[in-house]
Design a protein around this nucleic acid. Structure first.
Lengths: 233, 233
DNA sequence: CGTTTTTTTGAGTACCCTCAACAACGGTGG
DNA sequence: CCACCGTTGTTGAGGGTACTCAAAAAAACG
């Protein structure tokens, strides 16, 4: 059950730090962070980083690879609540009850940094900036989910997929990757489960975007041809 | 613009404290809380407690009455993201950017306690329990929104309304009100805007529940006749 | 008490779902 | 390297749920 843990490279020298952490940390604060985030964990494609009802111990930050998070209903219905790429946090839902509420599954072989919550909490009590950062992370997750509710509650299937692609593109761009061309690690079914529609509908919408010259999908490889057009959908 | 602020009755003697705050606060912590939560604000039916893009200064707790929160899209589309009743928090979305992301509108003449965020943050750095409580509040909001995504993404209109009624009932019960009979302060349109459907559909589903002997709606007054039946829908 | 807003109900329609068949892809072993 | 097979993705036809438009009834408000 317990996956191998390995020494993490340090936050203080991590290339993802700008995505993960506030920009104005003092070197003392960075040093403290290095003593908290000591290990990483590898999760293989399809395996769970954590499952619903697991005891909550740590927050995680995606280091390499990608994940999906999903919530399950008693009756087996699933809703994907997000996809996480490097630099993005995982596990914030567990603080509430001390148990994870969703599960996080790796979409490919991936690595996460482990942030033991108890220690991190202590650090936050000492550092105003770290404290503020954690609040902002959590609040940001609330805002992100609000806009997903908007998407699910008010948009057509076509608009949902367009929003999804533009959002992903923007996040890749933030990390220095191309926003115009990227690889979808998730299946059509997983996209559908995220956007509240069936996989056939996802596929049809991709075909429509292709026909209309908005994107060039070739399987999982996506090229966004006309971002403005997508935004207008 | 600025609404009248009045002296709040103290947290230490507030009957909603059990809903609002952790149960294990020391009397010293309660005393400190009294010095932070000094004022209340009245908001009249239809007026905004805050709007999107307002500077974020304070968290709020509903004291009397009720609110809806909603996010707006550029094109004017609205999504109601929640309804808040006494004891529930408002404004957690503002921490992320320092600006409110949604707007909070009173559904009836209402009162809120004002919790200046800067001061509260300081208090949280001193008190481990208060800090933990704020994390739990924010995480709880994340969990709440996840289950709304599940609702919007996977359920039929009938199931959504059933879930909505059962959720409301449970929240009223927590506050010592009847969970079997209550007054909906929000319109059919607002319910629809929350549940991702049109007001006509909301009305039809109420009629269906009435026909099936699950609830007795008479306008805004709702009586839940068969809670188990509702859960099975 | 009249006016406005909200709610209910009906009829017709559009969007997305279901079911189904086929194509493409990716990994495995001969 | 290619044949094989399971998985994933695409496309079509038909149907159902929820939407739109519309009108009447009920409730809320001043």
């Amino acid at each position: 059950m317990a996956a191998p843990r390995r020494a993490a490279s340090r936050c203080s020298t991590c290339s993802l730090r700008a995505v993960c952490m506030p920009s104005d940390l003092t070197s003392a604060e960075l040093q403290q962070l290095d003593t908290v985030v000591l290990t990483t964990r590898h999760v293989r494609r399809g395996e769970a980083l954590f499952r619903a009802h697991d005891a909550f111990q740590s927050l995680y930050a995606v280091r390499t690879g990608s994940f999906k998070t999903l919530v399950m209903h008693r009756d087996g219905r699933e809703q994907v609540t997000g996809f996480q790429i490097p630099g993005e946090p995982l596990g914030l839902d567990g603080v509430c009850t001390g148990m994870h509420n969703c599960e996080a599954i790796a979409l490919e072989d991936s690595t996460v940094c482990i942030i033991p919550f108890g220690q991190f909490e202590s650090l936050c009590r000492e550092s105003r900036r770290m404290q503020r950062h954690l609040y902002q992370l959590m609040s940001g997750e609330i805002v992100r989910e609000s806009s997903l509710m908007m998407l699910l509650g008010t948009m057509s299937a076509e608009q949902r997929l367009a929003s999804f692609l533009l959002d992903l593109a923007a996040r890749f761009r933030t990390r220095g990757y191309s926003g115009a061309q990227f690889n979808l690690k998730m299946s059509r079914e997983e996209i559908g489960c995220f956007l509240g529609m069936k996989l056939e509908t996802v596929s049809r919408m991709f075909s429509r975007f292709h026909r209309d010259g908005l994107v060039q999908p070739s399987g999982k490889q996506i090229r966004i041809v006309d971002a403005e057009g997508l935004a207008r959908v």
